[in-house]
């Protein structure tokens, strides 16, 4: 059992996500930075689908009521065990009675804490991920609060205390300002100049950016759109279209652009002019409020190559912890 002494700003239980229900309007939820979540699990000998804690900007204080092997990855929140600093991206032994504490992230946004055996909250629709908007999954469907107790699953014994991820596999969260995007489905609604402006703008991440949507602020977007007659079934705003499904990572043009993240609505009537690649959604999850980002158009092939190359990298990392 892990007892929450201080919850931090927003700490939730997350796994790889809740899949197979998108058609009924259920978004996947799951770790916003899947790379950091997955590596955290590999470091302690778990499979990638074990649940971790996702911490945001300010981490929690946690008291362990049993011995455990843990690893912190993602944004560095200066983790400490009983007040003594412990390394990130490394399997660390904690003993019953130990307190793990986290500070504020100075680069990046989200840290992940894995525990050998995983955070063993009940599955809801085959996933332990928290979806706070409707209050399901994770611990009682919400952010952790003081006094919560989290069960830990049985460890498989594969963890090697002290084993660490090579520096070459640790991302640099200070330089994540170029975000790859596959244009479409509704980029046909943009003028040539509008498309150029969309891709040429430095968009600022709003303070409202969260697990639902990464809200951006920048120039007026209506001028980027072709004039048209309002089609039957579409709303009156020039950025409205007849309702369609929204891919995770798609950029919804609703007043200003909103990149739909893992807790977002699954469909609606705003033009989605591009989709952020899965790899760069991990980077976006670590991009801080008020930072500026620029979109770079890539084609589907390039996006798939980037994903394949990251999959290879993850396989390499996994192999080093299986030895």
């Amino acid at each position: 059992m892990i007892e929450v002494l201080e919850p931090g700003l927003s700490t939730t239980v997350q796994d790889t996500g809740r899949y197979g229900h998108y058609h009924i309007g259920m978004p996947p939820s799951g770790a916003m930075d899947q790379y950091a979540h997955t590596v955290a699990n590999y470091v302690v000998g778990n499979d990638e689908d074990a649940a971790t804690l996702e911490m945001t900007y300010a981490g929690p204080d946690l008291k362990f009521q049993e011995d455990a092997v843990v690893a912190a990855t993602g944004a560095d929140m200066e983790p400490k065990r009983n007040g003594e600093p412990i390394p990130m991206w490394t399997a660390v032994q904690v003993e019953a009675g130990d307190v793990l504490s986290f500070e504020f992230a100075t680069e990046g946004v989200r840290s992940y804490l894995s525990v050998a055996g995983g955070i063993d909250v009940p599955e809801v629709m085959e996933s332990r991920s928290t979806y706070t908007l409707i209050g399901i999954g994770g611990h009682e469907g919400r952010d952790l609060e003081e006094g919560d107790e989290l069960p830990v699953g049985s460890a498989n014994g594969n963890a090697t205390v002290g084993a660490a991820v090579d520096d070459g596999h640790v991302p640099d969260y200070a330089n994540n300002d170029t975000i790859s995007v596959v244009m479409g489905l509704c980029d046909y609604r943009l003028t040539d100049e509008g498309r150029e402006e969309f891709l040429g703008t430095q968009w600022k991440i709003s303070d409202e950016a969260d697990r639902v949507g990464c809200r951006l602020t920048g120039p007026d977007i209506e001028g980027m759109f072709e004039e048209r007659e309002q089609p039957f079934g579409a709303g009156p705003d020039p950025t409205n279209v007849v309702d369609l499904g929204y891919p995770v990572g798609s950029i919804q043009m609703a007043g200003q652009p909103i990149i739909l993240m893992r807790d977002a609505v699954t469909g609606g009537g705003y033009a989605t002019v591009g989709t952020v690649t899965s790899i760069d959604r991990d980077m976006l999850a670590q991009a801080r409020t008020h930072n500026e980002i620029t979109f770079e158009a890539v084609d589907v092939e390039e996006a798939l190559e980037a994903r394949a190359s990251q999959d290879e990298q993850l396989e390499l990392i996994r192999a080093t912890f299986l030895e």
């Binding site: 945001t56 900007y57 969260d210």
Partner: peptide, 8 residues
């Protein structure tokens, strides 16, 4: 300080 609709 408000960020992500949370307040610190």
């Amino acid at each position: 300080i408000g960020v992500m609709k949370n307040f610190h």
